[in-house]
Computed example of a mutant assay.
Amino acid sequence: MKPIISPWLIYFASRADSLKILAGCILVCCIIAICIAYMEGDIDYGSVLTHKSFMKKCAIVSVISAVALAVTPSAETIYTMAAVKEITPDNIQAIGKTGKDVIDYITDQIDKVVNDKEENKK
């Protein structure tokens, strides 16, 4: 029997929150680096231009990090998306709940299985 959700999807879903944290940290560090590079240069003498390429690189990394932060879904969203493709109207009627209740139940069960496995490793 084929599993509803691939074990690889569960693994990558558990790493999605870490990716968001990493992207946020990189974004904050780049913004701080840009501010320091700008303050270190003296506008009157044009020495800000010496840090221009560094600031440009930090700005590019900041934009990429901000986009990654914005488009990376949470683990719960990934589980929901994976479960939704397997749910049909007949399944929902058989259970007798709304679609949202079914998705919440499935997501809770997946989290329970994943958390039980993590606790057993400790």
Score class of each variant (00 low, 15 high):
85 K>F: 03
70 A>L: 06
66 A>F: 08
46 G>R: 08
43 I>V: 15
52 K>M: 13
86 E>P: 02
43 I>A: 15
78 I>E: 01
57 K>M: 06
41 G>E: 04
57 K>S: 12
57 K>G: 09
45 Y>L: 08
60 I>Q: 10
66 A>I: 04
76 E>Q: 10
74 S>T: 10
35 C>G: 11
73 P>G: 08
46 G>M: 01
35 C>H: 04
47 S>H: 13
41 G>L: 05
65 S>E: 00
48 V>A: 11
53 S>T: 15
53 S>I: 08
63 V>D: 03
58 C>Y: 07
81 M>R: 12
40 E>S: 04
54 F>M: 10
77 T>I: 10
74 S>W: 06
81 M>N: 08
66 A>T: 00
43 I>T: 14
82 A>N: 03
76 E>I: 11
40 E>P: 00
73 P>N: 06
66 A>M: 01
74 S>D: 09
42 D>S: 14
39 M>T: 10
67 V>W: 00
47 S>M: 08
65 S>T: 01
51 H>T: 10
58 C>M: 13
86 E>C: 06
79 Y>E: 05
64 I>H: 01
71 V>P: 14
76 E>T: 12
37 A>K: 06
65 S>F: 04
45 Y>P: 00
44 D>L: 13
84 V>L: 10
34 I>F: 07
56 K>H: 04
37 A>V: 09
85 K>S: 12
79 Y>P: 07
64 I>M: 07
63 V>L: 08
34 I>G: 03
85 K>P: 01
37 A>D: 15
77 T>K: 10
85 K>M: 12
75 A>F: 05
62 S>N: 02
52 K>G: 15
80 T>H: 02
80 T>P: 00
36 I>Q: 05
